[in-house]
Design a protein around this nucleic acid. Structure first.
Lengths: 172, 172
DNA sequence: ATATATTAGTTACATTTGTAACTATTTGCA
DNA sequence: TGCAAATAGTTACAAATGTAACTAATATAT
């Protein structure tokens, strides 16, 4: 029996990918228009605002971007003097990053409220019940997706199957 | 007052983008491993399974991909003889596309159940109440995101502001 | 103490993706 | 009719992204 009744428009992975696409377009223009900031750069700034002195690899963990993407974002932010870099004296491989005093801070303080407003625009489309459930739903979907991904990785590799969880958490 | 309390991990656009990323990795490997199919190619197949004889531009509408992305997917599927192409006699610009009889169909019939299974893995992580709300939530978020995007476009252009809805629907 | 492995960060290259220009065909209309 | 505008599809080029190899510094183990 051939399967003709598959409907892309209601297929959950497609819906989510579409939504993420539309959102990232929206958010990209929010950031870009005023300050020429990409989404990746914005992520770096956001984490540095919260965790000043983070290293590139710490940023990679916290943003789920790989280290090359982080590197590029950092490079561009450094060039525009929105962040600065200090080599750690204990471990000279590490370079700690900080938002610069007047310049980077100004951009950051301008963008954060915009980001919040955009998020509010999205959330205000939902009923309060829906909004309340959303974070939990996203958590669960994220975990399920990661789990499925990990299971596949196991079934494909002839290596010894992993016992633990797929994504090890950060420190503290 | 500087804004230091912005938290990327709970920022809705980030969460959704992260989820979409993880899902698309998962789904990409689902498709790719057996048949060497990309997500774009899968979307084309999915629509052609439902609407045989669609043209490239119709596919672009139905998959929210632009015509160049569609073109590339089609090209690759043609090369592997998973789809075939017939020039419309009424309008010779149009080339109607069809999944090929044994080959394309076999791939399609193999992938659809996998896709469904993956979707089920995701949905089964949710409570029935959450699952029930999800489609509606995604619809609302999608509309809100599109609306915000459209509003921005208006505020940026010096053109006459649009009156209608941002995305015109399909025929039928 | 020294060789080996690991980690941080960077660079180089290949692949993918997006943007714009182009051809062929059809449509609208003076 | 015939000429401008629109549409379908394609191609060419530029920008973004991913993969792998590399350097420097530190940690580990003998």
């Amino acid at each position: 029996m051939p399967t003709n009744d598959f409907d892309l428009e209601h297929f959950l992975p497609y819906r989510i990918s579409l939504l993420a696409n539309t959102i990232s377009q929206g958010i990209a223009s929010h950031y870009r228009d005023e300050h020429g900031i990409t989404a990746a750069e914005w992520r770096v700034l956001a984490v540095l605002g919260r965790f000043p002195g983070s290293t590139a690899s710490r940023l990679a963990q916290r943003t789920a971007m790989d280290k090359v993407a982080i590197h590029r974002a950092i490079k561009s932010l450094l060039a525009r003097r929105l962040i600065e870099r200090k080599t750690d004296r204990k471990d000279r491989r590490r370079r700690r990053l900080f938002i610069t005093a007047p310049l980077g801070r100004a951009v950051f303080d301008d963008i954060v409220p915009r980001a919040r407003r955009f998020e509010q625009e999205l959330l205000s489309a939902l009923s309060s019940a829906e909004a309340r459930l959303l974070q939990g739903v996203l958590d669960k979907l994220q975990n399920a997706a990661e789990k499925s991904l990990a299971d596949q990785a196991i079934s494909l590799s002839s290596e010894a199957p992993r016992t633990g969880s797929p994504l090890q958490g950060d420190e503290a």
